[in-house]
């Protein structure tokens, strides 16, 4: 479903990602862990064509996307969703308009039908009462959840989550983890989840990849990561919760 082959990414000479090889199978959930600034968000942006790799190939559903133009990319993006690290809600639109945006723009559904889907997704993230609020009237954690509802509203095949539960209280974070798991199990969604929370990674992910200074230094299921003899991995998974 998602395949990265020898991907490098530099911002003005500064190498952020080095020789990344990674593949995510259909229906799989991959968690990406790593310290701040290690290049996790950049990796997600490469996968959805917001950034282009300096070199290497990125395959999404049997298409090499790094050389596609925006119009061709848009076709693929219709089947993808993304939760941004800082939510990126449209601040001139209400919560409901934000969630319904993709449907309004790209489907023939009626306003009433869209409204029904919006209600459904709002209920999933526990924000039924805030439908007509503007984003600037919401707390950071609430914005996150709206952003999540927006990403799943179009029922994409692939969802990229950039720290979906950071900034949420433990109960809400647990709820979001369940929601991510639910989308995978019920809708067969392929997901890539950037997270700092090891418990969450163990719970939602089939496999975990650790990025360190732009390189993948460990990749495998929870057992493999827990038993890794790489010091850098051990340091992260034991101290991660405290450092965060």
């Amino acid at each position: 479903m998602i395949d990265l082959i020898n991907v490098n990414k530099s911002y003005n000479e500064f190498a952020v990602l080095k020789n990344i090889n990674l593949s995510v199978k259909k229906g799989e959930t991959l968690a990406i862990i790593g310290a701040s600034g290690s290049g996790k968000s950049t990796l997600l942006k490469l996968m959805i064509g917001l950034q282009r790799p300096t070199s290497g190939e990125i395959w999404i559903k049997q298409q090499e996307i790094s050389k596609l133009d925006e119009m061709q990319l848009d076709k693929i993006r219709l089947t993808m969703g993304m939760v941004f690290q800082y939510s990126a809600l449209f601040d001139s639109m209400t919560v409901a308009e934000n969630i319904g945006f993709g449907l309004t723009e790209h489907s023939d559904l009626s306003t009433a039908e869209i409204d029904k889907i919006v209600d459904e997704k709002l209920a999933l993230v526990g924000l039924e009462k805030f439908k007509e609020y503007m984003p600037n009237e919401l707390s950071g954690g609430m914005k996150k959840r709206v952003s999540l509802a927006r990403a799943i509203a179009f029922e994409p095949e692939i969802i990229l989550y950039d720290e979906p539960s950071s900034g949420l209280d433990p109960i809400m974070a647990g709820k979001i983890d369940k929601l991510i798991k639910y989308t995978q199990q019920q809708m067969g969604v392929t997901s890539v989840v950037v997270t700092h929370d090891m418990d969450s990674a163990y719970y939602i992910a089939d496999r975990i990849a650790m990025i360190y200074n732009g390189e993948i230094i460990a990749l495998g299921n929870a057992q493999i990561i827990k038993n890794s003899d790489d010091e850098r991995v051990q340091e992260f998974i034991s101290g991660g919760r405290i450092i965060r």
């Binding site: 959805i48 925006e70 848009d74 076709k75 941004f84 809600l89 993709g102």
Partner: peptide
């Protein structure tokens, strides 16, 4: 700067 333009792109909107 708040990545709303990126969000538009992600939702296949030019």
């Amino acid at each position: 700067v708040t990545e709303q333009i990126d969000a538009l792109k992600v939702m296949a909107t030019n």
